[in-house]
């Protein structure tokens, strides 16, 4: 953990491979796609898989593989930025609350967290969308806001037991203030917790983005997104079920990959859990 290498389990490697596959596809889609997804070609609609279209085409004649790649880009961007919001705001708040345990500041941070938890991310999204209209940015905000209390809790929960350890006392005897101690001693020691939580929130973000764009509150056309593809396919589920199955499988594979990776990272990074695994 400190000096040794991270050792992943086989399931962890599968997760890492799936994650890398989708992230790679999303990155590739920035510079190259097999077909332009902005072009609609009704004559080529609902084609079965062929060398030109390895996964066939959708009801507008767009290449499914290209759509899935572009959709991965949207999903990953939204979920990643939402995790960034949660990390950027939640972690400092959580560390602050832990450093001032039991004070009014701690109380305010924790009650604020509870308040956000009272609004499921979908409800936040509904509120934001009702006022500002649906967009990918609003989806990021809605998911990101919900990530703040999650990371604040993880950071606070991870920091509290460390605050009682003697090395924190030694740092205080060495004249260090709470902020400096939080930065030098606490943050590095909760990094593994944060990495694991970030993986989990990333996968939840993928699911949330899919749900939001499925009900029309997320990315708007022509931006490709997996949830949107599912919503479009639903009307044709009787005739073209494969259009509904492929984006769903993509979501499952991506989320599964992230979860497997997160679990494996937790086992590899958390010595307490590793010991329990004996």
């Amino acid at each position: 953990m400190m000096s040794g290498r991270i050792r992943l389990s086989p399931a962890g490697w599968i997760g890492a491979a799936l994650t890398a596959l989708f992230v790679g596809a999303a990155l590739l889609s920035l510079v190259w796609l097999p077909h332009d997804v902005g072009v609609l070609d009704i004559s080529a609609r609902n084609l079965p898989p062929s060398p030109a279209h390895p996964l066939g085409t959708d009801h507008y004649g767009r290449d499914m593989l290209s759509m899935l790649m572009a959709g991965a880009r949207t999903s990953i961007a939204v979920a990643l930025l939402a995790v960034g919001i949660g990390l950027g705001l939640g972690v400092p708040l959580g560390l602050l609350a832990a450093a001032r345990r039991g004070s009014w500041l701690d109380e305010v941070v924790m009650r604020g967290n509870d308040l956000i938890f009272a609004f499921p991310s979908l409800v936040i999204a509904i509120l934001i969308t009702a006022v500002f209209g649906p967009s990918a940015v609003n989806a990021i905000l809605a998911i990101g806001i919900f990530n703040i209390p999650v990371f604040a809790r993880v950071a606070r929960g991870g920091a509290l037991p460390i605050w009682t350890l003697d090395y924190i006392m030694a740092a205080r005897v060495a004249g260090k203030g709470r902020a400096l101690i939080s930065f030098q001693h606490l943050l590095p020691n909760i990094t593994s917790l944060l990495i694991v939580q970030a993986t989990i929130q990333f996968s939840l973000g993928i699911l949330a983005e899919a749900a939001l764009s499925y009900v029309g509150l997320g990315a708007q056309p022509p931006t490709a997104s997996w949830g949107r593809m599912l919503a479009d396919a639903q009307t044709m589920i009787y005739t073209e079920p494969q259009l509904a199955i492929m984006p769903g499988l993509a979501i499952v594979a991506m989320v599964l990959g992230l979860n497997l990776l997160g679990d494996a990272l937790r086992d590899a990074l958390d010595p307490r859990l590793r010991r329990m695994g004996v």
């Binding site: 996968s203 699911l207 899919a210 749900a211 499925y214 599912l230 509904a244 984006p247 769903g248 979501i251 499952v252 594979a253 989320v255 599964l256 979860n259």
Partner: peptide, 8 residues
């Protein structure tokens, strides 16, 4: 089960 979106 966790990875499957409920609406899908």
């Amino acid at each position: 089960g966790i990875a499957v979106p409920n609406f899908w």
